[in-house]
Design a protein around this nucleic acid. Structure first.
Length: 742
DNA sequence: AAAAAAG
């Protein structure tokens, strides 16, 4: 409960008073005041309501039965014969009330996560609803159990969401006609729209092809089923392919031969193998299957080059050089890539890579004097108009790697043209979380502005009015999250038809279930043959679905030598008793320096933040149950150093950059090695040192071992107990000489 | 389980 800073002990104490105190009549008032007042300013009606409910509930327990009827009425709130109630019943009432409050919060929580932001502002309406709901919540505990009954109740977890949300939402002016009419139009289309009609409208042989692709999409879903077969070796796959009617239809017969037999095989086996020593190690990690998806799709490439509307891309695919790029082998789980060694980059400047002087200067101001390896690798390729897949470990400067050349490209594409009012965006950058989108914009915006381009953020959780307004004026680069972007597209307020560059940050994550489909739909709205850039620290074949459909002969880069030895992050695993967990966590975060704690669920994140707070360690939480204002604010609190502890779900696992987090604590071990890599990547950024500690119980050791293997991380497993020196050491509270002597 | 849209 980040919001309510009062120690948990505080409120019970307040409730405690009336039991012994003589101020009985004020009980309800205070009760109501404590809640409602804190929330949105006490309203008499609500106070009355609650008081009433309280009376009723307390009735059976209280002694004064004969007096009950009278006190049931709100008008009788003040009527409290001393003999009607003794201290004891109240005590019980208090216990129930407290439980009821907890229940109310968790329920409210859940309810709010559904309809979180919008309704509050409208009008009085929602509030009345809430008022009428509350008493019911309070009743609950008498009948049911709290879902989350723990010794450390997550009591307040709901509290912060109340009230504080309300003031946040500015109501946009009603637009009685605009959206409504759009809606209606769209509404009709929506069901079957699925992008088809529009696309065909827009013509270009492209569309047809894509439509074709789309009908094939099930392939991806099939992949699972296909896998075992693909596993074995390359042959069966080819047979499969030729058997499939669809593929043949699409002229697979012409194309595939070239790409599979000639190109692919040769490149994959002869050329690249030798050069990619890294891959050996990597392959172990990979599940063997998967290559198939890529190959089956290759034919499209040729289709695309033919229909491609973008000269630069045609140039590229036409250039023999492109064929020599060792980069388009996308076969194993881990993409095979041309690796760029950091040393190769020495002495190269951003200017050398082809960026204009304004941009170079801005980069310098941002603290990027000379390019990191991943930047040196990808910037020229992006500038050349190629599709790029790039893998660079966390904190290695990926944002600039795609952002700077993206701005340059957009600038070039507009050279000589006047920036029109209401122009549609030329580039879009998609990120998996709002915080990341915001952060990317913070990096890109100055770069863009330095050359006179405009960016805007399009993400959910905030009123869309401002975003739409910006789009109406005209922006060049859109940075956002999939949900709102698609929403605005569907509303006809965002037009991507002129969007020539699309970037997916955390691309592998964006390809996960639930994310990939909106992303695909959005990408289909971009201009034909638009350039696609996929970046992630854990880029692997999971991006196959997108690569197959959207990328043409992509360049794939990674940075050589990115192993644990070259990392600045120290990893440790603490094997603990579950009963010690809470206290160990508190002990771990009680330290100097910024600490990021990862929890698996939102509720647990809240609970931990509250727990730390109660222990006197200021902490805030970050997760999807918070409204966007709180999310932003809580993250900012860590960034600014107002708190040193942030407890987050995996919403903060990827991409989020806070300068000096020196300890990452995983209160819950992650399930995936990628998650581990990303979470731990919140520390040790840009060469700084950092420490990652993961708490597990004995039973989890084996799973953890396997996970670390996949992550290619060596971490000692250490048994730790509550008052262990180990904890002191990890927290950085090593006893000083003074401590030892005293 | 979490994330991503709600005038």
């Amino acid at each position: 409960m980040p919001k309510n800073k009062k120690p948990r002990g505080g409120r019970p104490a307040a409730n405690f008073e009336p039991r012994y105190g003589a101020k009985k009549t004020s009980f309800h008032d205070r009760h109501a005041g404590a809640r409602d007042g804190a929330r949105d300013g006490a309203r008499p009606e609500r106070g009355a309501f609650r008081a009433d409910a309280g009376e009723r509930r307390s009735a059976p327990a209280a002694g004064g039965y004969d007096r009950r009827p009278g006190s049931r009425s709100a008008g009788h709130r003040g009527y409290r014969p001393a003999e009607a109630e003794s201290g004891a019943p109240k005590q019980r009432w208090n216990a129930q009330e407290r439980a009821g409050r907890d229940e109310a919060r968790s329920i409210r929580n859940r309810a709010e996560s559904g309809r979180r932001e919008a309704p509050h502002h409208r009008d009085e309406r929602p509030r009345f609803d809430e008022r009428s709901e509350r008493p019911r919540f309070n009743d609950r505990p008498t009948t049911g159990r709290r879902f989350d009954e723990r010794s450390r109740p997550s009591t307040g977890s709901g509290a912060p969401y109340r009230g504080a949300e309300r003031p946040r939402f500015e109501r946009d002016g009603q637009r009685p006609t605009g959206p409504g009419t759009y809606r209606d139009d769209r509404g009709g289309q929506r069901p079957q729209r699925d992008d088809r009609p529009q696309r065909d409208d827009r013509g270009f042989g492209d569309r047809a092809n894509r439509a074709g692709d789309r009908t094939e999409r099930p392939r991806f879903n099939d992949r699972g089923a296909d896998r075992p077969r693909f596993d074995r070796d390359e042959r069966p796959r080819r047979d499969d392919r030729s058997e499939r009617p669809q593929r043949n239809d699409r002229g697979a017969a012409e194309r595939p031969e070239r790409s599979y037999d000639a190109d692919r095989a040769r490149r994959a086996f002869d050329r690249d193998r030798a050069q990619r020593s890294i891959e050996g190690g990597r392959d172990e990690r990979s599940r063997p299957s998967t290559g198939g998806a890529y190959r089956t799709d290759r034919p499209r490439r040729d289709d695309r080059t033919a229909r491609d509307t973008r000269p630069s891309r045609n140039d590229w695919s036409a250039k023999p050089k492109a064929a020599f790029e060792p980069t388009d082998d996308v076969v194993h789980e881990r993409l095979e890539a041309k690796s760029v060694a950091a040393v190769e980059v020495d002495g190269v400047s951003f200017g050398d890579l082809g960026l204009g002087s304004n941009i170079v200067e801005t980069l310098a101001n941002l603290g990027a004097a000379s390019p990191f390896a991943i930047q040196a690798a990808s910037i020229p390729a992006v500038l050349a108009g190629r599709d790029v897949l790039a893998r660079g470990r966390t904190g290695s400067g990926k944002t600039i790697a795609f952002g700077a050349p993206l701005v340059e490209n957009v600038l070039k594409s507009q050279a000589g043209k006047r920036r029109e009012f209401g122009r549609s965006p030329r580039a879009i950058i998609l990120a998996p979380t709002r915080e990341l989108a915001l952060q990317i914009d913070r990096t890109i915006q100055p770069i863009a502005r330095s050359v006179g381009l405009f960016t805007t953020q399009i993400y959910g959780g905030v009123p869309q009015g401002r975003q739409v307004g910006a789009l109406k004026k005209g922006v060049d680069i859109v940075i956002g999250t999939p949900g709102r972007v698609e929403d605005l597209i569907n509303q006809g307020k965002l037009d991507l038809s002129d969007c020539r560059i699309a970037v997916l940050d955390e691309a592998d994550h964006m390809c996960e279930l639930g994310f990939v489909e909106p992303v695909q739909r959005i990408l289909r709205h971009t201009a034909d043959g638009s350039q696609k850039l996929l970046f992630s620290a854990t880029l692997d074949r999971e991006v196959a679905a997108l690569v197959d459909e959207f990328l043409v002969d992509p360049a794939v880069y990674e940075v050589a030598g990115e192993d644990q030895e070259s990392s600045t992050i120290e990893h440790r695993v603490l094997v603990i008793e579950h009963r010690d967990k809470a206290d160990i966590l508190t002990s771990l975060v009680d330290r100097q320096g910024k600490t990021l704690v990862f929890a698996r669920t939102r509720a647990y994140a809240d609970m931990l933040a509250e727990q730390f707070d109660d222990a006197g360690i200021p902490a805030v939480s970050l997760h999807g149950d918070l409204n966007q204002a709180k999310r932003t604010r809580n993250l900012e609190r860590l960034t600014s150093g107002r708190v040193n502890v942030l407890v987050a779900t995996d919403v903060a696992a990827r991409g989020i950059h806070v300068d000096d987090i020196d300890l990452v604590v995983q209160a819950d071990a992650p399930d995936e090695y990628k998650t581990y890599l990303h979470r731990s990547g919140r520390t040790g950024r840009a060469g700084r040192s950092g420490r990652v500690v993961t708490l597990i119980t004995r039973q989890r050791q084996r799973r953890m071992t396997e996970l670390l293997q996949r992550a290619e991380i060596d971490a000692p497993f250490e048994n730790a107990r509550l008052d262990d020196d180990l904890i002191e050491e990890i927290a950085g509270r090593v006893p000083t000489a003074a401590d030892l002597t005293s």
